[in-house]
Design a protein around this nucleic acid. Structure first.
Lengths: 219, 219
DNA sequence: GCCGGTGCTGTGAGTCCGCTGAGAACCTGT
DNA sequence: ACAGGTTCTCAGCGGACTCACAGCACCGGC
């Protein structure tokens, strides 16, 4: 099992290297975000341990870029626990697990093993709805077998709808979860526009409007 | 057992953290409503301890949003206020239990344990009354199996009635709770109009008039 | 039967909500 | 630098909704 540890504090980095090596992992170190991203891109790691506070490129940025490049290597984020948004952000950006400093080494090991175990059952399941099909692993969407090209926002909006069928979703919630975690700085109209795009590409019957409340995946 | 404590007073927050940790819980803290909501959304908590008076987003808002997002994590509300309406409010918005400050720590612990025990039978979110059926998750209303289209006000008025069966509700209270929290600037006649709409769509036998007092859901 | 009070409902004006086309700003790859 | 795609805002439109008004219906007391 090959791990990449991205951590700028030398003491911490060496301690992790020593411990994880002793527990049978092969460990590579990177001391900043840029180096970590470059290493992770090589695609040879079974998991990445990623500090949030890094000089230059933050851990958030690293995992966000990896995901946008279709790199789904398991990522565990590590951060000093201070900001209220930390954990939410990390998971939003595509980390698979999250650990706050100070942490117990045994806990880290357990969570890491769980992460690797989880990952070994191969990829996230395909989401289906009527003749629509979305594969989170490849980010591919097909309608009645025909591939449909979606932009990033369109895709993520659709994925959110498919992950929450059978319930009404408000525009505010969509702005929170699909757009920015803080959900501010966007107009509700933006959601309307993107729902419009999806309807144009996938048929107007897919997403139902619930006036005064939001949208819902049609049955 | 993992708990989320949402509390803005640092002293209180730390005291709770210390006590609950000593009693074997894993405790995360959030200092305001927005952070609390973000954390609670992650869905990893066995229960949430939620202060009502929070800067920004109030505890009421937090639990309301969680429920509207289909998140049924057990929530215990904590508030300095102790008016009879407060308690009703908290429970209305979807809290599972309610505690008023100042409270005894032992009481908190007992109620919390009871809450966690109770949780094994999940709460049914669908409201029923005779052959009427209202699902808050989808905002869908069916009468004898037939879907009924309601406008926003109509729906919210009906939901309020269904959440308060077996009691007379004054027009003033409805204006307070369904219309504007301030309840001013509306005529009582508005309620009459909307009750009329509901009767037309759902049958005249549903909502009984209590002359001089208000309305009541028919038995 | 008469009367005051209360509730019901048809009408219509104004408002709000959601949809869409157009276009500015911004990336990204060539 | 340029072209093509993407993101997001804006303005305008049409329709749904909200609510006040006013007159009518109903109820209860005399």
């Amino acid at each position: 099992m090959r791990l990449l540890v991205v951590e700028d504090e030398a003491r911490m980095a060496r301690a992790l290297e020593r411990g994880l090596t002793a527990d049978g992992f092969t460990v590579d170190l990177a001391g900043n975000g840029v180096a970590g991203l470059a290493r992770a891109r090589e695609g040879q790691y079974d998991a990445v341990l990623l500090d949030v506070m890094l000089p230059g490129l933050s851990g958030y940025e690293v995992v966000k870029r990896l995901r946008s490049e279709d790199n789904w290597v398991p990522v565990m984020m590590v951060s000093a626990k201070d900001g209220p948004y930390d954990q939410a952000d990390g998971l939003d950006y595509g980390a698979d697990d999250y650990l706050t400093k100070p942490f117990d080494y045994v806990v880290l090991l357990a969570r890491l093993r769980a992460l690797l175990r989880r990952q070994s059952d191969p990829r996230p399941p395909v989401l289906n709805h009527a003749d629509l099909c979305l594969d989170p692993a490849t980010r591919e969407v097909t309608l009645a077998g025909e591939a449909v090209a979606l932009s990033r926002r369109e895709y993520e909006l659709l994925e959110f709808f498919l992950r929450h069928p059978d319930r009404v979703i408000t525009k505010t919630e969509l702005l929170d979860r699909v757009w920015d975690a803080r959900g501010v700085g966007y107009e509700p109209n933006t959601v309307e526009v993107y729902v419009g795009y999806l309807r144009r590409k996938l048929g107007s019957g897919l997403i139902a409007t619930v006036r005064g409340a939001g949208y819902r995946l049609a049955r």
